[in-house]
Amino acid sequence: MENLLVILLVMMIVAAIMAIHAKDLLSSLIAQGFVGYGLVICFILLRAPDLAIVQIVVETVTLIIMVSVLHDSTRKEIQVPAGKRDIYTYSLSFVLVGLMLYYFNRAIATLNPFGDHALRMSDFYAREAVELSGSTNLIKGVLWDFRALDTFGEATILFAAAAGVMAILRIKGRKE
């Protein structure tokens, strides 16, 4: 299973690079959709059915919104010769990538190897969720019962984002 995940992840990385370098914005969106649906397969392989379902919905909605944005504007990528500033941004990004790769290597040295995770506080959830929350789905038990305050915060952020979208998309500004 680990080999399958490695193959999927390499394909996702190739698709991500394609999405960033595509000449046409629509094909860039299709490559981004490949990354998203590859993530769905990864979630199914990692035994996370709830995440897979939600990711399918989220990815589809995101693609629809992006295509409608492109429908309202242009799908041409900006074509300009590389200038002095481009050399600066490219070198900055490569320096940042190398620096973060070093620190990430130091950080994952403390993690357990893949598949050898010890359930510490989730052990309590896994044992007691059915009795205490009455939910046979442990994720729903954690989300709606043990950590309901987090879900409340999520709902707040959703409301704030929806209000922001409404405010930005209003055609006419209010006059004093």
């Binding site: 990692l46 035994r47 996370a48 709830d50 995440l51 939600v54 990711q55 989220v58 909605v61 995101t62 995770h117 359930l119 506080m121 989730s122 959830y125 896994a126 969720a129 442990l138 994720i139 038990g141 954690v142 989300l143 950590r147 987090d150 879900t151 999520e154 952020i157 959703l158 984002a161 929806a162």
Partner: peptide, 19 residues
């Protein structure tokens, strides 16, 4: 079972990412 806690947190984050 696999750890339910990170999965629940990712479920929250997925929806926030959409927003």
């Amino acid at each position: 079972v696999v750890d339910p806690l990170p999965q629940a947190m990712v479920l929250t984050t997925l929806v926030i990412a959409l927003a």
